[in-house]
Simulated assay, not measured.
Amino acid sequence: MLKRGETLVNEGYKNWSQSLPLLIVHGTEDHAFMEKAQTADKKLSFMYEGGYHELHNENNGVKEQFQDELIAWDEAHLSSGQTAKL
């Protein structure tokens, strides 16, 4: 993402399958890819109070909140039986 982020925002979103679920965890000001992605099932999560760049490495409760959100999102999509091909 660090090397190809601009390419993803400018062109890569066009290749994202409309049937493939998408979860983006981001900073509050960086939502260009989310707006462009045409998938029907997408969620933008960005309000992690006290969080910085690596939410999975935070030591102030953010890591646990982030992990809980990822698990809930995964479980919801796994239980729906939804599959898609890129």
Rank of each mutant, 00 (worst) to 15 (best):
L2K: 13
G5F: 05
E6N: 11
L8Y: 08
V9C: 04
Y13K: 06
N15T: 04
W16S: 03
S17H: 08
S17L: 08
S19A: 14
L20F: 07
P21R: 04
H26K: 04
G27S: 15
T28Y: 09
E29P: 04
E29H: 11
E29L: 04
F33W: 04
F33A: 07
F33H: 00
E35R: 12
E35I: 03
E35N: 06
E35A: 13
K36F: 10
A37C: 09
A37D: 02
Q38A: 10
Q38D: 13
A40T: 12
K42I: 11
K43Q: 03
S45D: 04
M47G: 14
Y48L: 13
Y48M: 01
G50R: 06
G50P: 02
G50A: 08
G50T: 02
Y52V: 05
Y52H: 12
H53P: 12
H53D: 03
H53V: 04
H53S: 06
E54M: 03
E54V: 07
E54A: 15
L55S: 00
L55E: 00
H56Y: 01
E58G: 00
E58H: 01
E58F: 00
N59E: 09
G61P: 02
G61Q: 08
V62Q: 02
K63F: 00
E64V: 03
Q65S: 03
F66G: 03
D68L: 13
D68V: 05
W73H: 11
W73Q: 03
W73N: 11
H77E: 02
H77R: 11
L78T: 07
S79P: 01
S80Y: 08
S80H: 05
S80L: 11
G81D: 09
G81E: 09
Q82S: 15
A84H: 15
L86S: 10
